[in-house]
Structure formats: C-alpha cells, structure tokens
Nucleic acid binder design. Structure first.
Lengths: 208, 208
DNA sequence: TAGATTGTTAATCGATTAACAATC
DNA sequence: TAGATTGTTAATCGATTAACAATC
C-alpha cells in the first residue's frame, strides 16, 4: 500500500515514459527519469520497487515494461467511468482533456443545470440535466466524479454525487467539501496554487 | 521561513475565515478552523504561530485580525500582476477566477497566438498577441505567469515567460517544465489528480 | 475558580539521505 | 574485468503527535 504521493508520482512517470517511448527510447535510468520529473533518482527507484518492478544495473528500466507495470498497478482492469458536473469554461476544458482519450479512465457523461447546455454532445460526451445524475451514474456504472460547478453550488453538488454512488471526487471548488470519510476527495485548488506561486516568486526575486 | 505547505494552508485558511466572517462570526477556535480545512487543530495552531499571530485561550483567534495577519504575510504590499498565456476554455475559466477579483493578485493581461482572440477584452482583461509578451510584462511590471497553452507549446511558452522577466509560473501543462531553478513553478496536474482520485476511490470501495 | 484552549516542549513516527553490497 | 547502476540497509532529518504548563 504505497502512499498517495507515490501514486501521484507513478502517474507522472507514466506520462513521461510514454513521451520517451514516442521519442524512440526503449530504456531509461533512474536519474534520467528523475530529471524529467524534478525528483531524485533514489525516489524513482523506491517508487518503482514499490510496484514490484525491477530494473537492470546496466540498462536501467525497460520503458515499455515499466509503463505496463504502472498501468497494472494504477488502472482498474475493468475501467472506471467518470462523470463531469458543471459545463462552464472549466468543464469544457476538462472534457477536452478527459473525454474518450484514455480507455480505462474517461468522462462518459456531463451534467449541468442550465437547460441550454443539456442534451448536446461536447467533445464526444453526452450532456444531461443534473437531476438525472443518480440515474445516469447507475446505468453507466460511474464511480468517479469531477466537480466543476460554481463555488456556491459545490457542496450540494458533491452531496448529490455521493448520493448517486460516486466514491471519488476531483474537486475544483475553492473551499473544501464536507463529505463522509468513505469518499476520496482530491482538491484542485487554483487560488491556493496561484497565491503560493506568487509568494514563492517574491521570495526568489528577493534572493536573486 | 515557513514551508511551502504552510503557505498553501494559510491561503486556504484565509478563504475559510472570510466565509466565516460573512456568516457573522468574529472569532474561531483552532479545532473549528481545522474541521473546515480537513486538518488538525495542532496544525492550525502551528501555522498561525508561524506568522506571529497569537490567539486567546478563551476566545481562540480573532477572525478579522487573523485574516489581516495572513494577508500581511502572503500578499505583496505593492501587489503582484499576473499574465495568462493561452486563452482556450481553461484560460477563460482562469480569467473568470482571477481577473480583477483580488486587488493584490490579479490577471492584468492575457496572451494567445490566435489572431482571432487578441485585441479583445475578456472578463475585463485585455488580450494581446503572445509575441508582445516581453513588452507588456515590462510595461505592466508582471512577475507571475499562468501557463494554460496546449501541451505541445508549454515548454517554449514557459521559456518565453522567463525571458519576459516572469519569476513564478503556475503550470497547467501535463508534463513538468524544464526551467532554471531561480523560477518558482507550481504544477496543476489535472491528469495526475484524476488518476489518483480514481485509484483511491477503488481502494475505498474495496474496503467498504 | 473551573474549564477549555493556547503556546511550548519532549517523544514518536515517517520519509529522505547516505553508505554499501549485488548485478549486468 | 571494470564501471555504472540497482536494490538494500543504516543514519539522518523533518514533521507530526502527545504531554504539559500558561492563560483568559
């Protein structure tokens, strides 16, 4: 049972490895991979060991095999269906990112309360009215949700998601949701991230 | 010199405190604030101590004073101007979030290579062609940038930002940027976040 | 005063770093 | 074989937790 940080790094490794594969490379050393992800070689080795894959002292890691190891660790073999709630600008950007791109983890339904937005197909994804959430989630076996509604509606939307059987929520609302502990919540806090980068930028420019 | 995690938590505390203030509350105990941010009371007390503010044993923290303490710690008194590069769906969502909302940290210019998008005003923010980046950043004293361009253009865009004098970048590209250490970079990795929430959801539903 | 909370110190826990033997 | 890298173990570092005195 690796830590959630290890999970996050594995996800990133996989994307970098896929790009290296596209560039025609077949193997990679821990320090090379570390450089691409702004990490350390020891960290990479620990993470790879955690999923039970082994490298070779002279060739490092076989990229294709490592990608497959990460996949069999991170991905649900049966696939996981994702619901997006909130079809504003952010929602549409998320549809472009996650609709139909990856077979094992893909947005299969979008929801909004605005009647003008429903019953359309955006980025290949069908849009439904939010009050059909429970019904559609049941029919499509959706277990993961993305909450991209305005701040004021975020808490009640999240509760409706839980009601609909969703057990993991990617949350874009600027304030943490109050949900039962059985629900996995990951906050994408853009305000905090911007304030942090602004603070760190000021510290850096003071030094330099 | 608090850790970057402390910085992130302070940013979140401030938003929660502002909402409590709107609800008419004037003071808050560490465990109450902790509950709102899914943290611990001890953590809250440590963070507050780190910025030199003190509470009272009987009344906890004065909300208005604590907000002000956090502000004088996090915010640049002179304000920091932010540039957004990439006016797609994501960029427009970011403009809605960050354009003109907060006087001390606000997007003051947006950039895109698409001629159809420039020389307009979106969410009160003027749009420029990307090749004017250096010029506009100099004129408007911009030190912070948001990178919201498509993945393929992310690295060269980030380099142009650095060239233009930007020292802190909020990055939405799915692969880490290769930049000098003097630049503060914060990654908003939506792919990792979604994969992580999907993984954790599966673990939770296995248990339950 | 009694009671709950705060700030502070000591103990614990986990993660990172460093050192080293094993391997191709 | 020589050399660089891997996997493993011990040492260090930092952060969290627990215990306690100070305070309103």
């Amino acid at each position: 049972m690796p830590s959630s940080k290890t999970i996050a790094r594995l996800s990133l490794y996989r994307r970098v490895l896929n790009r290296l594969l596209e560039q025609g490379k077949s193997n990679v050393f821990s320090h090379q991979l570390a450089q691409h992800v702004r990490g350390t070689a020891a960290q990479v080795r620990r993470d790879v060991m955690a999923i039970g894959y082994s490298g070779s002292p002279t060739r490092g890691y076989d990229i294709e095999q490592l990608i497959q190891s990460i996949g069999s660790f991170l991905d649900d073999p049966a696939g996981q269906a994702v619901a997006l709630v909130g079809i504003g600008n952010l929602g549409r950007a998320l549809l472009a990112y996650f609709s139909g791109r990856r077979p094992r983890l893909s947005i299969v339904a979008a929801f909004d309360t605005d009647p003008a937005k429903v019953n359309r197909v955006i980025q290949g994804c069908r849009c439904y009215p939010t009050d059909k959430l429970a019904e559609v989630c049941r029919d499509k076996h959706i277990t993961v949700g993305i909450n991209a509604v305005p701040a004021g509606a975020a808490q009640e939307t999240a509760e409706a998601m839980v009601e609909a059987g969703i057990v993991g929520i990617l949350n874009f609302a600027p304030i943490p949701l109050q949900l039962p502990d059985e629900i996995a919540v990951e906050d994408m806090d853009m305000t905090t991230a911007l304030e942090m980068v602004a603070y760190l930028a000021r510290q850096k420019s003071r030094k330099g």
